[in-house]
Structure formats: structure tokens, C-alpha cells
């Protein structure tokens, strides 16, 4: 066993410090050390996207990044997107448009979608499909996921307009 490193992360706005082996993957540090179990492990090869988080402003698959590489980073997971009393627009949209079934891909899917809508607030259906292609869902066939994301984009844009 190698010597443990001192790791500092800001996760969902909260500063977290802990010791970890340098080889430990970020997803396991989140899930097992910090008990943030929203992001899931589906493949450990970057293909499925169930582990997607936002790290320093970018969508990252936390199953193929060492926690050591993330040292000092600011991280948002599904747990940081909304609260039970005030769901994120995407969380509401996925519920409303049946954008999930077994729920295993959902945290990664919504986290990625939240970043996608920041990158491109007015995506076409094609841009949503392309922008979400790193996240696999086995249940829904994507049709209602795409619908949910487009609906959330409309909602976000409408509230922005209303605020102006």
C-alpha cells in the first residue's frame, strides 16, 4: 500500500478534507469516503457516464480520474443541483417527462445535462443528442431524456426572459 495523500475538495459547496491513496479513483473517494452516492459506477472505462460530475466547470467521468488529480478541485454532483424543497429545473423536467426508469443513469445524466445547458442554453434536438452521447441509458431509449432536457432549456430561457 502506498502512502496516503492529504486531499482537499470542495464538493457541492462544502470543503472536505481526507486521506486517500493516490491510486484511488475519484468516484470511490466520493462514494465511499464522502458518502456521496448519487454518482454511480457503471463501467469504470468512461463509456457509460453514470459517474458524471462537474469538476472545475467541466463534465468529468469520475470513474477514470484519480482522486489525486482532483486535489483542490471544485466539484458538483447530483446532490448539489437541487434540494428536496427546490428541485433543479432538470430534475423537475425529468420527472415531468418520464426521463428515467431504473434511475441508475439519472444522476450522471442530469449532471451532464446541467452542464450542457450552460454550454449551450438553446440547443437543438440534435445538439442535445450529441451533447449527451457520453451518457448511456439502458431503459428509456433516450426519447424522453431528450424531451426532458429540451423542456428544461425552454423553462430556463423563459425564466431568464421574465427576469429581464
Amino acid at each position: 500500500m502506498t502512502q496516503k495523500m492529504h486531499i482537499k475538495l470542495t464538493v457541492n459547496g462544502e470543503d472536505r478534507e481526507f486521506l486517500a491513496e493516490p491510486r484511488e479513483l475519484l468516484i470511490y473517494a466520493l462514494r465511499e469516503t464522502l458518502n456521496i452516492t448519487g454518482p454511480h459506477v457503471g463501467c469504470e472505462t468512461s463509456h457509460c457516464g453514470a459517474c458524471t460530475i462537474t469538476l472545475n466547470g467541466k463534465s468529468v467521468k469520475s470513474c477514470t480520474m484519480f482522486v489525486a488529480q482532483a486535489n483542490g478541485a471544485e466539484i458538483t454532483t447530483i446532490e448539489g443541483l437541487g434540494s428536496p424543497d427546490s428541485l433543479h429545473v432538470l430534475q423537475e423536467a425529468f420527472k415531468e417527462h418520464h426521463g428515467l426508469q431504473c434511475g441508475f443513469c439519472t444522476p450522471g445524466m442530469i449532471t451532464r445535462a446541467s452542464k450542457l445547458l450552460e454550454e449551450n442554453p438553446t440547443p437543438t434536438e440534435e445538439e442535445v443528442r450529441f451533447g449527451m452521447a457520453g451518457n448511456i441509458c439502458r431503459c428509456t431509449g433516450y426519447q424522453n431524456i431528450v424531451k426532458s432536457i429540451l423542456a428544461a432549456a425552454n423553462e430556463l430561457n423563459a425564466s431568464k426572459e421574465a427576469a429581464q
Binding site: H40, E79, P84, K95, G103, F104, T106
Partner: peptide, 20 residues
């Protein structure tokens, strides 16, 4: 609308690997 979705959309599902 599905009653399951509140927990799944908030990352509060409880799958076997979440058990500690």
C-alpha cells in the same frame, strides 16, 4: 407521474453498491 422519481432524480436511490 412516477412516485419513484423524486429519489432517483436527487441521487437518493439506494442500490446495492450504496449499502455500507
Amino acid at each position: 407521474k412516477r412516485v419513484e422519481d423524486a429519489r432517483f432524480t436527487q441521487g437518493k436511490g439506494n442500490y446495492v453498491d450504496d449499502i455500507k
